[in-house]
């Protein structure tokens, strides 16, 4: 299997899908000859032309809105937001429009549009370029939200997202683009709504996704040396949430820790813990825990940012406190 980066895997997914489906076109800032600030759309303009790989003005609400209109008129737009933080600039189009038009039309229109954006911190980009919005977005009925952590999942999930037929928020992470992994050859896709057990273990279930999933795997190796075997679940899709895979795992481990980079307050971790207590409280041998960003804006200096965002050492500490 070829070993390629997360950014290359996304680029392959776009290229392969665009080759077979002329309805697909890309829109975003600096995605054409520049190839996107993280090189995800590198060279695509040479192959597909400026009509289908379309540079936009810095006008997030209108170009997301244009994507919606084009989708209703038979196209399959893939819209790139330079930073997920800018989703707030386009919030009306994402939340009031894309998520609701199908419902408000009684199912007569559909919005087969993917909005790709990278999010998260760890790079000193500051409070308006480092946020993670999946918990907010998961509050909005009508959006599918995916957040792959590996190159193989990124490629397979982007393909599924483009083919899906619903508005999909495709969450990438700025510090995953250069990570490498084996990616299957040929056409394949990863189903939306299906989590994956990335590491087997009997003592505790760690649920994560996107970049913190890599931290969880790293923590699990250290914990293993200390005699704690962690099972690590990669959610891959945030909405719809694959609760069954979590319930099944906790049945075996009895302990649950959720780790994400989004702020802890009112976050996905809280949601999963609530569902755990609603659906299978008896499988827990102790109260579950969650780790997320602490409740301050994301700072720039490394020492500050590391204090706010969950680190591998925080995961190890949290797990050890549960034994």
């Amino acid at each position: 299997m070829p070993n390629i980066t997360y950014a290359q895997a996304l680029n392959e997914a776009l290229r392969e899908e665009m080759k077979v489906d002329p309805r697909i076109f890309l829109m975003g800032e600096d995605i054409g000859h520049h190839g996107g600030i993280f090189r995800v759309t590198k060279d695509l303009i040479d192959e597909f032309g400026a009509e289908r790989v379309r540079d936009t003005p810095i006008s997030e609400s209108s170009f997301v809105g244009v994507g919606i209109g084009a989708a209703m008129a038979g196209m399959r737009p893939v819209v790139e937001l330079l930073f997920m933080d800018f989703a707030l600039v386009a919030a009306d189009q994402i939340v009031n429009q894309a998520a609701k038009l199908r419902y408000m039309s009684g199912g007569t229109v559909s919005i087969p549009m993917v909005v790709r954006a990278q999010q998260g911190g760890g790079r000193g980009n500051g409070a308006q370029h480092s946020q993670s919005f999946e918990s907010w977005l998961a509050q909005v009925p009508g959006l599918i939200i995916v957040a792959p952590s590996t190159p193989a999942d990124a490629k397979g999930l982007l393909k599924s997202s483009i083919r899906d037929g619903n508005p999909v928020i495709f969450i990438e992470h700025k510090l995953l683009y250069n990570t490498k992994g084996d990616v299957p050859e040929g056409d394949y896709s990863i189903p939306i709504g299906k989590a994956e057990v990335k590491r087997d273990g009997r003592d505790i279930t760690i649920v994560s996704y996107s970049r913190t999933l890599l931290f969880a795997l790293e923590a699990a190796e250290t914990l293993s040396q200390k005699g704690i075997e962690a099972e690590v679940i990669d959610l891959r899709t945030i909405e719809p949430l694959d609760m069954n895979t979590i319930l099944e795992s906790v049945k075996g481990t009895g302990r649950l820790l959720i780790v994400h980079e989004a702020h802890s307050n009112c976050g996905l971790g809280a949601e999963i813990i609530a569902r755990m207590y609603e659906q299978a409280p008896d499988t827990l041998i102790m109260p579950p825990r969650r780790l997320g960003a602490k409740h301050v804006p994301i700072p720039v200096a490394e020492s500050l940012e590391n204090a706010v965002l969950p680190q591998t050492s925080d995961i190890i500490q949290a797990v050890e406190a549960m034994f």
Binding site: G67, A70, M72, M75
Partner: peptide, 17 residues
């Protein structure tokens, strides 16, 4: 004004098609 970009998007679809 939210429908204005939707019409623009439909116009773009027509142009691309």
């Amino acid at each position: 004004a939210a429908g204005v970009p939707h019409a623009a998007g439909a116009a773009l679809a027509s142009q691309l098609q």
